[in-house]
């Protein structure tokens, strides 16, 4: 009977590998991207099967959804050029395949050795034991925003650096035509729903799967839907307010952390009674920044307002 329950999992695993292979070996880039999105969704199901709902949410929202949207819009950018993947020589391709296969087997073997053959005590127990003192009851949130909050702070900075990269490289993409009546109706339903979902994910992160990254990605999805419907700004403000949005997460996180440092604690050592509220404040700011960064990445470059500030800047320089 063991085999019967195992069957769907084996099927999932097989399909996952098949989709990954198909996405990588596709000559048509658009086909590859679509397969990649399907792969991401399937991977989310696999995470859910492995009882990791946090990862499942993140993979579905960020891995499949937003990465997929970014890849598709990048393909649209290069519409004038060649849509086919660059042809590598057959030998080259085989060598790469062989290398990847050997590495996969090697890593898989070692992982099997370490996880099943001689398992060691890891940190999950300790993390759960300290949960009372962390201010939240979802262990994943406790790790991300309390125990290892410094990592998360730096991750937010990574997102900031990435979006600056997008801004540096060029102007934003051209927008889309205004939506037809059917799509327009759908947008009116979808955007509020996505915003409410984002708010829910943000709030629920304290005690169940959810949190700033998932909420930010969902909020960004609302922005992307808006842009597809012809709202070129995708719900983002411009100019100074956009800058404040982008740095909100990093700034609030850092200032609160330093506040603890100055008031006698360690960096990011929240007072126990306050930790729940402080974590929520940080998550709200982080959600706003992540959503703004993702939408800006989808818009694909500097906005008009961004340039406008620089222009004012230049005229100042001339006059002074």
């Amino acid at each position: 009977m063991m085999n019967l329950t195992l069957l769907p999992d084996l099927l999932l695993a097989g399909m996952l590998i098949g989709l990954a292979w198909a996405a990588l070996s596709s000559d048509d880039l658009r086909r590859g991207v679509v397969l990649f999105i399907a792969f991401g969704l399937l991977l989310a199901i696999v995470w859910a099967r492995l009882l990791a709902p946090d990862l499942a949410l993140a993979e579905a929202a960020i891995g499949a959804g937003l990465s997929g949207a970014l890849l598709l819009v990048a393909l649209r950018d290069g519409s004038g050029g060649d849509k086919r993947a660059a042809k590598r020589s057959r030998l080259n391709r085989w060598l790469i395949d062989l290398f990847v296969l050997v590495m996969t087997c090697l890593i898989g073997w070692v992982l099997w050795l370490t996880i099943y053959a001689e398992p060691v005590e890891r940190l999950a127990q300790l993390a759960n034991a300290m949960l009372d003192r962390s201010g939240v009851s979802n262990p994943v949130t406790a790790v991300l925003l309390n125990y290892r909050a410094y990592d998360t702070l730096l991750e937010l900075v990574v997102v900031l650096a990435a979006v600056l990269g997008v801004l540096v490289v060029g102007r934003e993409r051209r927008g889309y035509r205004e939506a037809g009546p059917v799509f327009y109706g759908l947008v009116h339903w979808l955007v509020p729903l996505l915003i409410v979902t984002a708010g829910y994910l943000l709030w629920v992160g304290a005690h169940a799967p959810g949190g700033a990254f998932q909420a930010g990605a969902t909020l960004a999805a609302a922005g992307i839907v808006l842009r597809l419907a012809g709202y070129d700004a995708a719900g983002l403000p411009d100019g100074r307010l956009l800058r404040w949005l982008l740095v909100a997460g990093t700034g609030v996180f850092l200032l609160l952390g330093l506040g603890m440092n100055v008031s006698g604690g360690r960096f990011l050592q929240y007072p126990e009674a306050w930790s729940g509220s402080l974590i929520l404040v940080i998550e709200v700011a982080a959600t706003a920044s992540i959503a703004a960064a993702l939408v800006l990445a989808y818009r694909g470059g500097r906005t008009d307002g961004w340039l406008f500030m620089d222009n004012k800047d230049k005229s100042r320089e001339v006059s002074s």
Partner: peptide
């Protein structure tokens, strides 16, 4: 030992401020 965070925090805080006040 709280000193140890400052070499990271100071440039990061300055980066945030630079983004907010590009003219300066």
């Amino acid at each position: 030992n709280n000193l140890l965070i400052w070499p990271v925090a100071v440039p990061l805080l300055s980066a945030v401020l630079t983004l907010l006040w590009p003219r300066r």
